[in-house]
Write a protein that binds this DNA or RNA. Sequence first.
RNA 1: CGGGGCGUAGCGCAGCCCGGUAGCGCGCCUGCUUUGGGAGCAGGAAGUCGCCGGUUCGAAUCCGGCCGCCCCGACCA
Length: 481
Amino acid sequence: MGNEQGITPRAEDFSAWYNDVIMRAELADHSPVRGCMVIRPHGYAIWELMQGALDDRFKQTGHKNAYFPLFIPQSFLAKEAEHVEGFAPQTAVVTQGGGKELEEPLVVRPTSETIIYAMLAKWIQSYRDLPVLLNQWANIVRWEMRTRLFLRTTEFLWQEGHTAHATQQEAEEETQLILRLYRSFMEEWMALPVLTGVKTESEKFAGAVRTYACEGLMQDNKSLQTGTSHYLGQNFAKAFDTQYQTQNGELEYVWSTSWGVSTRLVGGLIMAHSDDVGLVCPPRLAPVQVVIVPIWKSDAERDTVLAVARGMLEQLREAGLRVELDDREGMKPGAKYYEWEGRGVPVRLEVGPRDVKREQAMLARRTGGKTPVPGSGLRRAGEAGRARWPQELLTAALARREENSLRGVTKEQLVELMNGRGGFAYGGYCGDEACEEAIKQETKATIRVLPDEEFRTDPGPSECVWCGKKAVTEAVWARAY
RNA sequence: CGGGGCGUAGCGCAGCCCGGUAGCGCGCCUGCUUUGGGAGCAGGAAGUCGCCGGUUCGAAUCCGGCCGCCCCGACCA
């Protein structure tokens, strides 16, 4: 227990609410080190579930896990011009080791392209060595000025995929494959609908040719970049001299990609679904999917109720659900309900003497509603709930996103919307960075993506929202995390 | 780095203006009674008042300096 304070309502102060939910659900805590968080067991369990699901998908699509060092020689970072410009200001640098000044400072990785390319250059000689499809689960350090639990911390956990291909087309296909993979994970596991598309020059990854991203709308109508997939062209191959010999005996640089999602996803999960009571967690990512709360008065009642409850526990575990029996004594059922609701457990089963008599349990869903289920039908109810609920959360999140998306915005609407209630604003863009920058100055909104075809408005806009010149593309604006 | 707020028991806070035995709520421990939406009673443990210095007979309180954290902005996943 520990945290009996109420949660600040979303409407009152969204960021206070966000922190309160994290504390109440015991997902993470501030650490003694500025900007760094401690991920507590319940939060880490969510991350592990995410890792498991993603890792399966990476492996199904032919990727293999590896691990590269935390330290990167400072000179490596400098080999790709845009890359160093983008990342150098954010790095932590080790200058001493074993009490002695190092000959060359070591950067704590802000991302691993450089050290991975240095190794790929050794491993790749022939077209027969391609493609190389690697992933690593690692921690990363980026010295951010301002941090927020899960969303932006100095050190964070992520996965970074790095692939090298013989052809441009294959690399581009890989970038798209991963973008789709991320999107389906976010929708199916996190119940988070995301827009996909290309980033503008100013928003792309330092060193990439193009960056694709997933963007999800949070409950405060700000957008969260939940994943990125970069087409790197031959930029890093050239910087690290990663060449291979073609079938015709010619030397060519490899074409590569990199892509990642991080513990930020946990923050996105929180902000997408949770309410003023605490965490709401889609069942697939819930460390505890069902909690059984037994209720009794006398010792005799306790014995019978607990026996029945243990049977239910067994039954549901056999059905593959993550279930806990909360048999703590000296704590009233109501107190347990509050605790588990705060932690985001999707389903609670209450079993008391009355239920034992009727051979049933009361099933209460985290998002509301309480119904009796027969003891014999628990397993079926559990499975049905597990399948149906994420769909309901996704549908609700999708509806919320669409309600807060405005298509074909005028300049006035864009300014009003971005300085007001927020959301996604679709409009024409001339492609001139001056317009992008002006909009950012005026509204703090940035182009989240140039949306993929599926998300585009039909017919598309013909004029730039800002300057009125001919639009070269449609863009989606939002304030972002 | 700029603006705001805050450092007093594990957590949340009061006390500071006006210096004089460090307090409240929650949590924790023990016991008894409780248990269908945050239990009650009784007893108990727990704090060098962020740090350093100054003023004073005496500092949580007044003065000076420093440090840390949180929130808002600029930077970013």
